[in-house]
Design a protein around this nucleic acid. Structure first.
Length: 299
DNA sequence: CTCCAGGTGATGG
DNA sequence: CCATCACATGGA
């Protein structure tokens, strides 16, 4: 293992919570408390050293130019948390304490686009597997600081040169043509992921949804996690459960500043307290419903 | 084996 | 505009 340098931070940074918070699918613990993150062509390995310090494998220049931005370290999360505590929303406050150290990462738009297109109707572990296999099949190999070989996220042109059949063979199922459409649009310039960076929210939102298989939820994920649009709130099953089970159906994030970051605290809280947000009644009714349908079929 | 998963597009009211 | 439905497959 390469020599690590210690970085002191102004605010909490939790590698584990970030890796487990559902906003990224490739980062994770590679053993012995060491986490690996990948951004573009760079591979970072690092270790937690208390709440506000990490030991990193990279040099100072790479940390400042790549990873400080990636981990959104310029933003004042303490101020955001203060606002939350002052708002009197006790569930959100609890989620914020529980999720302290989470940052909303600034990841690559193309990776976010493809990853969240893949994510539909998949569990988070299954998404991780799919993204890793996609990278192993189409991404460039590179040497990680540990010496291991890792695969970068595939370039649009490489994916675009693939075929629906080979993507299906990776297990992408009905999402294979969606991934291909995304890659082709980016590769041939119909969707310019650099140019759209400057568009206002609603125009970027519409532009992203021009891709087959990209609806509101995926578009919002790309905007939040790929373009740092922190007002965007991806609404998925878990956010819907939070609103219905925790807020009597009234969305707590409307008209909140940095709603996307608040969303991330709530989402992580729900992921780690699932029982609390799965309506038991609805589950039982679903079961009964299915049994009824089956008995009808046999009649 | 069953159930469900960070949804979306197509179709029909 | 809203309600359904099919969609492929891995993980628990």
């Amino acid at each position: 293992m390469r020599k690590f340098r210690t970085i002191e931070l102004r605010e909490a940074l939790s590698l584990r919570k970030i890796a487990d918070s559902g906003q990224c699918f490739r980062p994770g613990e590679i053993g012995d408390g060491v986490f690996r993150f990948i951004s573009g062509n760079e591979v970072l390995e690092l270790r937690q050293r208390g709440d506000c310090a990490v030991e990193v494998s990279c040099d100072a220049e790479s940390w400042d130019k790549v990873w400080r931005t990636y981990f959104d370290l310029e933003r004042d999360y303490s101020a955001i948390q203060r606002d939350i505590f002052e708002s009197g929303d006790t569930l959100l406050a609890e989620a914020t304490v529980h999720g302290d150290g989470i940052r909303v990462l600034r990841q690559e738009p193309f990776e976010m686009l493809v990853s969240f297109v893949l994510s539909q109707r998949k569990s988070i572990p299954a998404i991780r597997t799919a993204v890793r296999e996609l990278a192993e099949a189409y991404g460039e190999a590179t040497e990680a600081p540990s010496g291991e070989t890792v695969f970068l996220f595939p370039k649009p042109e490489v994916l675009a040169g693939s075929s629906e059949e080979s993507l299906r063979n990776l297990g992408l199922g009905y999402r294979a043509p969606y991934v291909l459409d995304a890659a082709r649009r980016v590769a041939d310039g119909r969707l310019d992921l650099d140019a759209v960076r400057d568009l206002p929210d609603e125009e970027l939102f519409a532009e992203l949804q021009s891709v087959h298989g990209v609806g509101k939820k995926v578009a919002n994920c790309v905007m939040l996690f790929g373009y740092g649009r922190t007002e965007r709130v991806p609404s998925d099953v878990w956010m819907q459960r939070i609103v219905s089970e925790g807020y009597q159906g009234v969305d707590p994030l409307i008209a909140r500043k940095h709603a996307g970051i608040l969303q991330q605290y709530l989402f992580y809280y729900a992921l780690t307290h699932k029982e609390r947000f799965i309506p038991r009644k609805a589950r039982d009714e679903n079961r009964k419903e299915k049994r009824r349908n089956e008995s009808c079929d046999t009649n």
